[in-house]
Write a protein that binds this DNA or RNA. Structure first.
Lengths: 104, 104
DNA sequence: CGGGTCGTTCGAAGCTTTTCGAAAGATCAA
DNA sequence: TTGATCTTTCGAAAAGCTTCGAACGACCCG
């Protein structure tokens, strides 16, 4: 299983990033990754089928929000915190704290 | 022409707000409103048909990003800067500066 | 009242998104 | 090799989004 390709930092586009963040399932995934942990697909997100989860991870990866790395039979997913901070300073933090605020 | 209804601050939802901001036409509208000006529909956004513009303004309004006020035959649209800041601190600013950064 | 301007709503076309189960691919362990 | 595990891809259904023109509604000025 190969590590898939990721957009380069200068290729990140704001509408894509915002769109990727506008889905509740994907927000949940982003929240689970907050803190810098590198998690396998099976640890992420609310209960959806594995094909659905795979789809959402693809959207996050292709928008530049997450990074996915092959490790044996697993895929380890993490946030591209630094690249996001360089492209859209503060954005990820705002979204995460907005999430917490609404999590109630 | 009546002033339409708007969601209350506590009703703003992060996925809705992010979705509303994830469209290039709507981002353009938000950028035009940045600075606090109150603009008529006809002053906003890239060249799209008026029904399309009306639709995008409705999405922005219903997500809580903009406020629309009737003034004679016009509708004056403005950003709900304070409400957004209260619900999702920093978000609007990040998005606007990210926009500038990509505007090139 | 009549006509003009501003904006919304309706109806529709084309495209994308979300979701799932079934099947296939990749890796490891025995 | 065979089987088990983890994940992606395929195919498909249902829902939603973006866009437009045409029609309508609200308001203002002569």
């Amino acid at each position: 299983m190969r590590t898939p390709s990721h957009p380069r930092p200068q290729e990140l586009e704001l509408p894509n990033v915002l769109h990727a963040l506008s889905d509740p399932v994907r927000l949940e995934i982003v929240r689970a990754l907050d803190g810098g942990s590198e998690l396998a697909c099976s640890c992420l997100g609310p209960p959806v089928s594995k094909s659905t989860l795979s789809h959402h991870l693809k959207v996050l990866r292709e928008s530049g929000i997450t990074s996915t790395r092959a490790e044996g039979t697993q895929r380890l997913v993490s946030l591209r915190t630094e690249d996001l901070e360089a492209c859209f300073p503060g954005l990820l933090g705002c979204v995460l704290s907005g999430l917490d605020r609404q999590a109630v």
